[in-house]
Write a protein that binds this DNA or RNA. Structure first.
Length: 192
DNA sequence: TAGGTGATCTTG
DNA sequence: AAGATCACCTAT
């Protein structure tokens, strides 16, 4: 079943990041259907989280979308090259989001290979936040776009991970003590 | 392990 | 206005 906007408006972004492991993510972009099982996420908990772009209430052209009502995408350019895809969560005014860091490819693998300029499937096809967005055709043009739409949507018909591991988040060493929070979730889908 | 790339934030 | 930094990836 397609996930509704209300699903993304839950107020516990860490629980939601964990719950998203095993959900089925779809894009239909440039007429190419791609889908995969979400295997890796990170929670970013708004203005009180030193790792979050909206820390201390930063409200800029880039971060403003994080304050909107949950159920839309926050896509931004990282290191000048990579488009990183987050799902904005919680209620209007709360700047929480979940970063999607990797999926297990299911449908549209030919399209993914072409977008990634690869000729073989490897474990890295959709793994890593920049690799995943490239494979699925997600770019900054999808910023602020609904994730319950015709172009991007999620489904619940579920695959349960064998195990879900919680670890510190990646690439946020600047976030001092918050860098240690176990808010990254990795699903083990070995043998599924 | 270094370098690419550009938006954003910080400093003078 | 310039310089540093940054939720990364690829190839040497």
């Amino acid at each position: 079943m397609k996930l509704s906007p209300e699903y993304f408006q839950q107020n516990d972004v860490v629980a939601l990041a964990k719950d998203l492991i095993g959900k089925h993510l779809y894009t239909s972009i440039d007429n190419q259907l791609c889908s995969g099982i979400i295997s890796e996420t990170e929670a970013y908990a708004g203005i009180g989280d030193k790792a979050c772009h909206a820390h201390l209430g930063r409200f800029t052209k880039r971060t403003r979308v994080m304050y909107k009502t949950g159920g839309i995408a926050y896509v931004y350019l990282c290191y000048g090259i990579h488009h990183l895809f987050n799902i904005v969560t919680n209620q209007k005014g709360v700047a929480d989001a979940v970063l999607i860091r990797g999926v297990i490819p299911v449908e549209g693998i030919e399209t993914m290979l072409k977008r990634r300029k690869k000729d073989k499937i490897t474990s890295q096809l959709c793994s890593g936040p920049g690799n995943f967005t490239q494979a699925f055709g997600i770019t900054k043009t999808h910023n602020s776009h609904s994730v319950c739409s015709q172009q991007i949507w999620l489904k619940d018909h579920c695959i349960e991970a064998n195990k879900i591991k919680a670890t510190p988040r990646i690439g946020i060493d600047y976030a001092e003590e918050d860098a240690l929070l176990p808010w990254r979730f990795v699903g083990d889908f070995e043998g599924i």
